[in-house]
Design a protein around this nucleic acid. Structure first.
Lengths: 130, 130
DNA sequence: TATTTACTACTAATAATTCCTAATAAGGAA
DNA sequence: TTCCTTATTAGGAATTATTAGTAGTAAATA
């Protein structure tokens, strides 16, 4: 059966702090914020709870998969799919629409481009007949 | 004036190796490949040259800016812009089209989603009047 | 060929994240 | 309430990916 999830003070505070800002903070930034309310909280706890909250769908992680950079020698325009499990990246054939790029500055930003990355499951990670 | 770029054996081999595969390798994978042809090449050289090749537009780096994860407590669908210089992330207001998600499996992959991230320059990095 | 300095190999340092372990504390049962 | 089970924690050490520092090497131009 599923491992139960307990409601802890740390987890509650991390979520509250994340929801109270619109700055899309890093784990470290959240650690500092949480620490101001719970001085003994540790960075590992912040990481673990963020992972857990992402899994439960209560929080979104902005980064595309791997923390490891990948390079492509093919500079012609095309898209990529990244396997959610193993991180493998493959080119995607065919034509897809790019999102519109806003021409006027929005909020604080002048937008200059878009990055699009598809995500999926590769056949080896999908497993046989699954 | 601009610093000139010399043509080195290392750089040539790194580029050749990258162009000879379609696996979107990491710096480390390229290091191993290059090392098989140039046993004394160092990992730092691979990193430096990849950066340089990306700058010159001969190579593409798949990863979005920061290697640091950012989190968002707002799980309703919306887009983000990331500043190319400082890495700051902001929500983007308004409606934008999402790229189509291919419904049939492509190559090796079953595609399940897309990640879209706009990139731009924030006002503080753009500088006054620039 | 000589000279300049971009570039290299090597090593040490940093940054972001994960792992490890004994101690703590949710939350259900008695 | 008190006890028990075990998910979760704090704290620190370990990993992983990347960047910096440095003395020596080698492109490219004169």
């Amino acid at each position: 059966m599923e491992k139960q999830t307990r409601s802890t003070r740390q987890r509650k505070i991390i979520l509250e702090e994340l929801r109270s800002v619109s700055s899309h903070p890093t784990a470290d930034e959240l650690y500092v914020r949480a620490k101001s309310r719970l001085p003994n909280i540790s960075l590992g706890t912040v990481y673990r709870n963020l992972d857990l909250l992402v899994q439960k769908g209560e929080v979104v992680c902005l980064e595309t998969a791997g923390l490891q950079r990948r390079f492509d020698g093919d500079t012609t325009p095309h898209y990529h799919v990244r396997c959610r499990k193993c991180g493998k990246v493959q080119d995607l054939p065919g034509e897809f629409r790019l999102p519109d790029i806003p021409s006027a500055p929005l909020n604080d930003f002048t937008v200059t481009g878009v990055r699009v990355e598809f995500e999926g499951i590769c056949s080896s990670c999908a497993g046989p007949l699954a």
